[in-house]
Amino acid sequence: MKRFAASELFHSFRHNRSAMIGAAIVAMFVVMVSIGPWLVAQDPYDVAQLELMDSFKPPVWLEGGVPQYLLGTDGQGRDVLASIVYGSRISLFIGFTAMLGSCVLGAALGLLAGFYGGKLDSVIMRIADIQLSFPSVLTALFLMSAFGTGADKVLIALISVGWVVYARIVRGSTLRESQKEYVQAARVSGLPNRKIILRHVLPNVLTPLIVVATIQVGTFILIEASLSFLGVGVPITEPSLGLLIKNGFDVLFSGLWWISVFPGLFIMLIVFGINLLGDFLRDELNPRLK
């Protein structure tokens, strides 16, 4: 059954050009962040490797560029390309991990709320409501201003804003599923709640979760970039793509465009790829539009 769904999905994937492009972009990034560090000449996080005298070199095709620094260097003599490779690692790691965290937390809370109902349900859903009345960027920005910078803190902030959507979906599906006869029957037959949830309820809500999760990785990458740009995200010594843009912003007006423009292009590319995949999954897995 599962294999069939997968192969049907795979079939339509092979006939969907944008989905293939999206997958190719994401795959390229995965390759880049996993083997990239061995390919670039410099570890931009190791300050001992930086050569101050090589700061502000333009990309290689411009006058003054050197082959050693393909996309130029920043004010610390950091290779822009190497920074992008390392920065993408951080951006992708944060986006993906925060999504997993939100998904697990949100699904757990949604299941609890939907399955048990009552007070627990209304407390969880009230919190979700209040949170939804705020744009997530603003909430994350505020949380970071209280926490201080750091990748771990960015994760906490993102998970704090990300769980709500899962909780709502899962709670809704759980409510629907638990009305169904087989779940009622299982309950009557004395099957422990944990088993009912795992065996009957959870599999039925997986599909919408996958769609939301895919798109959320992209959203999280963008939010992290925004936070880092405002100086409340990751620390300056280990810059993510967003922080690279910020570092370049200060000198953009003096014509040193490459420090900020390239990292931005890479953010756009990866989020675009993820969104293409997300669109495809939504169209395929969401019965309403099919």
Partner: peptide, 24 residues
Amino acid sequence: GAIAQALAGMLARINVKLNLNLMP
């Protein structure tokens, strides 16, 4: 921030590893 990073690079040459804690 840039001075701090430059300091870290310089002190690394005498084996003093400087971790940077930059704060607003």
